[in-house]
Design a binder for these strands. Structure first.
Lengths: 93, 93
DNA sequence: ACTATATTTCGTTATTTCCCTAAATAACGA
DNA sequence: TCGTTATTTAGGGAAATAACGAAATATAGT
């Protein structure tokens, strides 16, 4: 859970998730949307993956990233739990 | 919005919010719940305040912190927006 | 085997974050 | 005003994070 919030803390990573929400994209296609160097983005992908917020699978030479919706929903639920709102499961950490 | 996710990224700050959700507490009362030095916690309060996640008011020599529920709810809504879920307002950044 | 393309890993630098102790500030009561 | 309590600010060191260019890896096609 902490990994998730760490991952969400960076604006670029939130923007990546927002892109990915519409449709899965290759690392390169995502990189085209940013001014940031590819190695830097690659690092962001790694953080998102560590948080299990995205999954990746290779297709030939390109790597396709897709959002892991359930984890994103869990995070939202976690926040609602913090807020003490309806529909929130019990949470740790 | 970025400030909010930054603030939520630290486990201690999330724990503070969770405490404060039940009832407003003084800085010292919160500090009693942690092993962390008071100045360190004071720094965490400052981050939470910068994100507008908590408000503070002084009562004599003690300072009472309370959660700003609406901002916490906004953050949850922001996440749901990322997840593309119902009930989510449009969001920037 | 060689070349080209896509992506990541490595090594480095700069910035930020986190935590601490010590000192400062604020408000109270005697 | 003095002393006490509650909290914050200041200063500093260690560790984490973010960014880059260069080099490495993986795959496909020739």
């Amino acid at each position: 859970m902490s990994d998730v919030f760490d991952a969400l803390a960076h604006p670029v990573r939130r923007k990546i998730l927002k892109l990915l929400r519409k449709k899965p994209m290759s690392a390169g296609a995502i990189a085209d949307r940013f001014e940031i160097a590819k190695p830097t983005l690659s690092g962001h992908f790694a953080v998102l993956k560590a948080a299990d917020l995205v999954t990746s699978d290779r297709q030939g030479t390109t790597i396709i990233y897709r959002v892991n919706m359930s984890v994103l929903e869990e995070a939202a639920a976690g926040l609602m739990d913090l807020a003490g709102l309806r529909g929130a499961k019990e949470s740790k950490s």
